[in-house]
Amino acid sequence: MSSSNRIFSAALAAVLAAGPAAAAVLEDVVAKVNGKPLLLSEYQKNLRSVLDNYQKAMPEIMKDSEAVKELRNKVLDQMIDDEILAQEAEKKGIKVHQREVEKGILEVQERSFRQDAETGERRDDKAIEEALRKELAGEGLTWEQFSDRIRRQLLIRKAVEAEVAAKLKDADEKRVKAAFESCKSVVNGSTEALKGLPEVEVSAWGGFAMRLKDTHSERVRVSHILVKLPAGSPMTDKTKALEKSKALKKKLDDGADFYEAARADSDDQESAPRGGDLGWILKGWMPEPFEKAAFSLGVGEVSAPVETDFGYHLVRVQEKKAKEALNLE
């Protein structure tokens, strides 16, 4: 997802467990939620951002028509979820102040634009804003429209937090424990506790559980050097790619710096300027061979070449965080 839209998925569940209610397809409107239309133009902007991100990070997926169809459905589902929560927030009179919007914009700038993706250099504050404005212009968004998006997502985040907090307000110990166990079961993948709940509560609990899972699961921060190999390549190309990956591994074993090697030799144009840094990953986020290597390595270790649909990877673990148990206390 492009930088200006990353806040969309940070605080909320991606899809409701059941299909959204009261949605009807109309001309120039992709759906209606309780009478309010979701515009085709807004859907197309959101979809373009998601598809552009996948095209850069995982281009092979874009060749799979079923995967693209699933992405299209998820973008629409996310818009419907957001609208349900936004409407609920408005009903409850939840407000977002201008200073909160400004803080949200600063967070996006710091997280996504502080480092130049091409050079790896850190930008100053003026250059950060210029980079953000340039990306917004490329997406056909004004600064005011972007600010409205941030405001809306902060509103939705507050609605999620208010919904969960309301469940625990003035509750006795038994009810608190029951609510905690329900949340814990959702974190572990069960939807039993959500059956029969209104859609807004399903979304609230789902989003809260996802955030808990993200903050408590085992994770590793990884970098990689990719030797790209298109799917279906002939054996001769596959052999060349593997030999290149092995040669890079030998260079690293002989003392070469991983950061500089990734910048010079990795075929992943997105991460190469950062020395191959992919950030923190959880289990289930990456192709299975890559994930298996990442979670089995020690800090500072580099894997042998790992084959995925994208080619051969040399995986290096930078940091590790152990899984934390969910405790009521």
Rank of each mutant, 00 (worst) to 15 (best):
D253K: 11
D257P: 00
S203P: 00
A204S: 14
E243G: 11
P230K: 07
S217I: 05
E260H: 14
L229R: 02
V222N: 08
A231M: 09
R219M: 08
V200E: 07
D265N: 06
L226V: 07
D257R: 05
G206W: 05
K213G: 11
A261G: 03
D257L: 04
R211N: 12
L229P: 00
L248K: 00
K228I: 00
A256T: 01
T239G: 03
H216K: 11
G206R: 10
F208T: 04
Y259W: 15
D214V: 04
F258A: 09
S233C: 03
G255F: 11
E243D: 13
T215E: 11
M235T: 10
E199I: 03
K228N: 08
E201G: 06
D214E: 10
L242S: 03
P234F: 10
M210G: 15
V200Y: 03
V227G: 01
G207Y: 00
A256S: 11
R263I: 05
V202F: 01
T236L: 08
A231Q: 14
A204R: 06
A209V: 00
L248A: 01
K250S: 15
A264D: 10
S233D: 04
K249M: 02
A247G: 07
K240G: 08
L252Q: 11
E218N: 06
E218C: 08
E218T: 09
M210A: 14
K246N: 13
E201W: 02
V202P: 03
L248N: 01
K228A: 14
R219Y: 02
L252W: 10
L229M: 03
P230R: 06
K246Q: 15
G255C: 08
I225G: 08
P234I: 04
G206S: 07
S223P: 09
K228P: 00
K238M: 12
Y259M: 09
H216L: 12
K213D: 10
K238T: 10
D254T: 03
S233E: 06
W205T: 03
D254Y: 02
T236S: 12
M235I: 11
G207M: 01
K249Y: 08
E260N: 14
H224P: 11
M210K: 13
F208D: 05
R211G: 10
F258P: 07
V202C: 06
L226S: 12
L248E: 02
K246H: 09
T215Y: 11
M210V: 07
K250I: 07
L226D: 08
W205Q: 07
M210H: 14
V200S: 06
K251Y: 00
R263Q: 15
V200R: 08
W205F: 13
I225C: 06
K246T: 12
R219A: 12
L252I: 09
Y259C: 07
L248W: 04
D265R: 04
A264P: 01
G255L: 12
A262H: 13
K228T: 05
A209N: 02
E260A: 14
T215M: 09
R211Q: 14
K251R: 15
A262T: 08
F258T: 05
E218A: 13
W205G: 04
A264C: 01
